[in-house]
């Protein structure tokens, strides 16, 4: 784009790369990544809790970093690599170490916050912020769990971090 100012039409045609697949979409500029995923692409694993950046249920990865899909415009992440909970397991169905640890540690009750917790935990471990329970609690603070499964969530993150380190 050059220095000129061009105003987009009310519908944008964009391409999103999600879990390695390219998707073409016509959307209004105001559509968030969360709504695009859930309502348009039917990738409903990413949850809508607060829709205001306060709960972490909508956590996805953009270029490998955890972000909130509810405060991200879909148009803004064109050209970026987006990963959702649906893209975490291997193609043959083998679970990611964090997914397996959540099952083993029983780290959920209703499960609503779980996809966001898992996406957040994968990134938390990758960032090197899962060194102690205290650090896990601090760096997972952006994911709320109304069922209060926190002790088991910390245990699952600890277990997965240990497995991935060894």
């Amino acid at each position: 784009m050059n220095d000129q100012v061009t105003i987009s039409p009310t519908t944008l045609s964009i391409h999103l790369t999600i879990n390695g697949r390219n998707h073409a979409l016509d959307i209004e500029p105001r559509v968030t990544l969360l709504d695009a995923l859930r309502e348009r692409l039917h990738l409903t694993g990413t949850k809508k809790g607060c829709d205001q950046g306060q709960c972490g249920a909508c956590t996805v990865h953009v270029d490998g970093e955890r972000v909130l899909a509810c405060l991200t415009l879909a148009a803004q992440v064109e050209g970026r690599e987006i990963t959702t909970i649906e893209g975490l397991a291997d193609a043959d169905g083998t679970l990611n170490a964090v997914q397996a640890a959540f099952l083993e540690q029983d780290a959920f009750q209703c499960g609503y916050c779980t996809p966001g917790q898992i996406m957040s935990a994968v990134a938390c471990i990758r960032e090197g912020h899962a060194g102690s329970d205290e650090e896990i609690r601090e760096y997972m603070a952006g994911n709320l769990c109304r069922c209060g499964a926190y002790p088991n969530i910390v245990a699952a993150v600890r277990q997965a971090a240990q497995e991935l380190r060894s």
């Binding site: 784009m1 050059n2 061009t6 105003i7 944008l12 209004e28 148009a75």
Partner: peptide
């Protein structure tokens, strides 16, 4: 949220 137009600034 009211709709708006979207412009991606290249520089």
């Amino acid at each position: 949220m009211r709709d708006f137009s979207y412009l991606r600034a290249g520089n």
